[in-house]
Amino acid sequence: MPFVAIAYLIFLAAPVLLLFVGSFGEVWSGTLLPSGFTWRWYQEVAGDPSFRRAFTTSLKIVATTCILNILIGLPLAYAIHAGARGGVRLAARIVTLMPIAVPELVLAFGFILVFSSDALPWLGSFWLLAAGHLVLTLPYTVTALVADMDQLGLAEYEHAAATLGASFPARMWDVTLPQLHTSLLSCMLTVAALSIGEFQLSNLVSGFLSRTYPVVLLQAFYGATGFACAATVVLLGLAMIASLTSGLTARVTGRRKVGAGA
């Protein structure tokens, strides 16, 4: 088994390492590894107007998606957690499974059909793209937050706060939200990572001027290897930072929970 695990870690690291190496290689064509060292490719990516615009668009989309996830996903998760009846749970479970049962490609097709109509001519707009990202990440947010809420045992804390005289808004503000903030942070970082890399919906739904970074990145694959590597590494770096921070945040939360249980 350890052999498989090590082989797997190599498999995991190899494409990433090659991307890094390639992004600094002067020339890479028909050889095992590139030759020469250069920053040129990164400078070219940074200087490319369509990459610059896509990068900005992606950051705006990520920020919007995260904020909407909190504003909409947090109350929804709480309603599912506190509603807790069999039917509510089943409905919630179905909602979280829908994005797997309905591929992004089909959802994107549905967007094209519905939102290019005269009644709802939103196709290509920033807000429709943000709504798409929201729908794709909301199930993740809800699942993660409901699991954390259940595990924290919020009901007992809220009951305790009620007997001490706290009203519903006071209980939310003083007891419920403070216990959730690390799990909320970890969750938002994962949402950011998912949103920044989202390609399958954005590719069909974003307008020419509101293309996200991954959509523009695809065009780079047909050009110079070094440029494609550098452009990919930028995306890779952003996703990695967001995921790693999310993982570490969740770990801190986990440690606190273990401490509380002792």
């Binding site: 007992e156 804390y157 009951h159 305790a160 009620a162 007997t163 706290a166 403070p178 216990q179």
Partner: peptide, 20 residues
């Protein structure tokens, strides 16, 4: 009346001290 209006002190089985 709601629990918060009853002015009763409750000690819960697992204490329910606010961890934060």
């Amino acid at each position: 009346s709601l629990p918060e209006a009853r002015r009763l002190g409750v000690v819960f089985q697992n204490y329910a001290l606010f961890p934060h």
